[in-house]
Nucleic acid binder design. Structure first.
Lengths: 349, 349
DNA sequence: CTGAAAGCGCTTACAG
DNA sequence: CTGAAAGCGCTTACAG
């Protein structure tokens, strides 16, 4: 509960100054690489820094300079490989830029998210990258964070004036649908996700666009909701076949749903890739090794992380610009199998 | 490259003190929950804190008190779900204890690890949880970190006097081997990993113990090295069948290797679970959905993360105790399939 | 119960 | 080119 006493005997600027007979000011100038210092003096100081094994206390410097070298990264679910990769990308770019990542994971809990942000704010982050927990309330978050700290929202839209980085959900679902259309499918379902999530709405929109462009109208019973987990998806499989004629293919909300659907199909004696075609979204690692391997929409989460870091850093140096919405590209990753089945002959609607 | 100027107008203790006509000292006492303050005064101060939307500056307080509320988490590979789960567990427990996680990922690079640690140290962590990059040099790390900051090493042994939390690798491999023995296998390989890693050595030892206990002596050609990745493992599959009689089963260094081997087998016209039995190690999420599902050794990385956090926090309050080695339990996770094949009849060696 | 004063480790005008 | 002094936002004996 309580922070911890540092071991005694930290070496400070004063120790270095004494050690080589200059003032603290001079040592500080050396540390910050000022060209004002005489080269001989600099050498003496640097030798002394090494000799005493000096460690810069960035917190003290930041306090004095009224700056911050930390960026908070609030992640809804680190155990999801998509977000883990994202976090790795963020950390990579922040480190390169000389910032440290202050991590907070919320486990998709709005309460924990509130607590985590509160704690992180006390550490005075220069900015925040926020991948909101499901069900987040933009206004409430805004009230908590205030206007002093720039925020970049990732992935899930929030009703705020913060910067927003999102995947091109619409385009992704469109690509997935077009791919199935090219294989001859006509009765294509959109399977999984919750209608009230912005990403689900956008993906459905892309699906609908592609269908419409092909002269098709999605039947209401082809739009099937379920929580974006493997288990729920497996359980909802039956809904696909509730009415005849049933779909021959499905664009899935994400890979987890797609994998669940594949399981659900085989539990009903069907085989994905043989008598039903499936395409996912996200390209999680499992997609490569599932049976059959899953064609899906690749979003390169690590690159998204790097991008998020760049965006927040940019914002830090440009506080007063208008909020920005950035849409990150996605691409179709075809893997022979989950989608190889074509529509049954004579099935052109 | 440079840290960032905070927006102007941070509300400080002084503002609050002025706002309700008390001294900064009194406000500070209120913040820290001192019982000395008159209850009426406390209420006034608290109202003012709320009114002005005060945010505590923990950095300043820590500086004055000579304490730290951050713990550094240095992770070799966040994109590995095992470590991502571990990180989630660490963060969860640290947050509960009122600490913030300072994240640094090294991507298995010893150079980056050095740089990352350097940067983290400047942020004055109370302690460090270090999951070392492959090839780390204990002495070099020790020289860098010094003796002021307690370190808990996770997963890979390092030649230092730091605390160490490891998986029970020996026991895990023993369980895996015994499981295959129970299925009737006699020619069992140990597949994958690098002999110079401590975890690989320990797992091989567990394998050997189980074999010996069953009166069997592993042939040298049953010990096959390869990098612990899916790709390398697939590539090394042939080595299993280089000499007759070939093994009928393999204990794999980890799940990635096991999945690679499964691919490698099917590329050679063999089917894991039908004519060759495979057991993994780690129980990564893919193990559940691979084809066939993978029997493996579950290590519960999230619980390990929580455990690591507890250990380092304990150490912070007990700096002078002797270094501790903690071995975390593992268990066999049987999944019908990858191991269901029994040894061919008449094959009892 | 409350306030004045010193100080954590650093930086930065300002003199010299 | 270098040093003395003030100050970042907080805490903590110490008086009163």
């Amino acid at each position: 509960m309580k922070p911890t006493r540092a071991a005694p005997g930290r070496v400070t600027l004063t120790d270095i100054a004494k050690g080589c007979g200059v003032s603290r000011a001079t040592v500080s100038l050396v540390l910050r690489g000022s060209p004002l210092v005489n080269v001989r003096t600099r050498e003496r100081v640097e030798a002394e820094l090494k000799r005493q094994n000096y460690v810069y206390h960035r917190g003290a410097a930041n306090l004095r300079r009224k700056v911050s070298s930390g960026v908070a990264l609030v992640i809804n679910d680190l155990s999801n490989p998509f977000f883990a990769e994202f976090a790795a990308g963020v950390d990579e770019s922040l480190a390169t830029a000389g910032y440290v990542t202050l991590l907070g994971s919320t486990g998709e809990s709005v309460e924990r998210q509130q607590a985590v942000l509160n704690s992180l704010l006390e550490h005075d982050p220069a900015g925040i990258i926020l991948s909101p927990a499901e069900g987040s309330d933009g206004a409430r978050l805004h009230a908590l964070v205030g206007t002093r700290t720039p925020v970049l929202v990732f992935n899930r839209e929030l009703d705020t004036d913060w910067d927003f980085l999102s995947l091109d959900n619409r385009r992704g679902a469109q690509l997935a649908t077009e791919h199935l259309l090219e294989r001859g499918h006509r009765r294509i379902a959109f399977f999984g996700g919750h209608r009230d999530s912005s990403s689900c709405r956008e993906r459905r929109e892309g699906y609908r666009l592609a269908m419409t462009a092909a002269g098709l109208t999605p039947e209401p019973q082809w739009l099937i909701e379920c929580a974006p987990t493997r288990l729920e998806a497996a359980g909802q499989t039956g809904a696909l076949f509730a009415r005849d004629p049933a779909p021959t293919a499905a664009v899935c909300y994400n890979d987890a749903v797609a994998l669940g659907l594949i399981n659900g199909l085989s539990a009903r004696g069907r085989r994905a890739g043989h008598d039903f075609a499936v395409v996912g979204f996200d390209d999680i690692p499992e997609a490569q090794v599932s049976a059959p391997p899953l064609s899906t929409i690749a979003v390169d989460p690590r690159a998204r992380g790097r991008q998020a870091a760049e965006l927040i850093l940019q914002r830090l140096h440009n506080t007063d610009a208008a909020p920005e919405r950035t849409v990150a590209p996605v691409r179709l990753q075809v893997r022979a199998s989950s989608d190889t089945v074509s529509a049954p002959p004579g099935d052109a609607a």
